[in-house]
Simulated assay, not measured.
Amino acid sequence: MVKDFATASVDADEGEVRAKFWRTAKKAARHIPFMDEVVAGYFCALDKNTPLRAKAILLAALGYFVLPTDTIPDFILGFGFTDDMAVLTAALAAVRTHMTPAHRLAAREALVSD
């Protein structure tokens, strides 16, 4: 029962992140120097083979990233994405072992296609 609730919660978070990720990523790309890792983290979070704990960490961080009104609102030039970078850096460090070459390749391809 607890696992079903956790899975349902991650699925709901995944849907929200999917809906807002690319719009926010395009705005943030010039402010976040490690955007390729962020996008690889996005693909890792969507991978069915990624463990639930790692997915939850990534989706929470990516959810924070896509929220325009977080600790430091994203529209504040020069500072808006600094809190997002801190959260993303911590999340990516926590799940780095689950990010595969396939996630990184998908990220490079996605970033080139824009």
Rank of each mutant, 00 (worst) to 15 (best):
A40H: 07
D70P: 15
V10H: 09
T7N: 08
A54K: 02
M1K: 05
V39T: 01
A25L: 02
F65E: 05
V87K: 06
A93E: 10
A12I: 14
T100R: 04
E37Y: 01
K55V: 08
R23N: 10
T100N: 01
D47W: 00
L77S: 15
F79V: 14
K27G: 04
A60F: 06
K55W: 07
A93F: 13
D11K: 07
T82E: 08
D114W: 10
K3I: 04
D47N: 00
L62P: 01
L77Y: 13
F34Q: 01
D11M: 10
Y42P: 04
L105N: 12
A93G: 12
A40N: 07
T71S: 09
I57K: 10
L52A: 14
D47T: 00
R108M: 12
T71R: 12
A93D: 15
L105V: 10
A25G: 02
I32M: 04
V95R: 01
T71F: 13
V38R: 02
A110F: 15
R18W: 02
R23K: 14
L88R: 02
H98P: 09
S9L: 12
A19P: 05
D83F: 06
K48V: 15
L58A: 07
T100L: 00
F75C: 11
K26G: 09
D13V: 07
K20E: 08
A40F: 00
A107V: 00
F75R: 13
E109V: 12
L52S: 11
K55E: 06
H31P: 06
F43A: 03
E16Q: 13
D11V: 14
V112T: 15
H98F: 14
F75G: 09
L67D: 15
A25Y: 03
P68D: 05
T50C: 05
R23H: 07
V112C: 09
V112S: 15
G80I: 03
F21K: 03
K55Q: 05
M85V: 09
F5I: 07
D47A: 03
A56T: 11
F21L: 00
P73A: 04
L105Q: 12
P33D: 14
L105S: 15
D4V: 11
A8G: 11
I72N: 08
R53F: 11
A110Y: 14
A90T: 00
L52T: 09
L46Q: 03
W22R: 01
A102H: 10
H31N: 10
E37C: 06
T24V: 10
P33Y: 11
T7M: 13
V2L: 14
I72M: 12
D74M: 11
P68C: 01
G41T: 08
L111E: 05
N49D: 10
A29C: 07
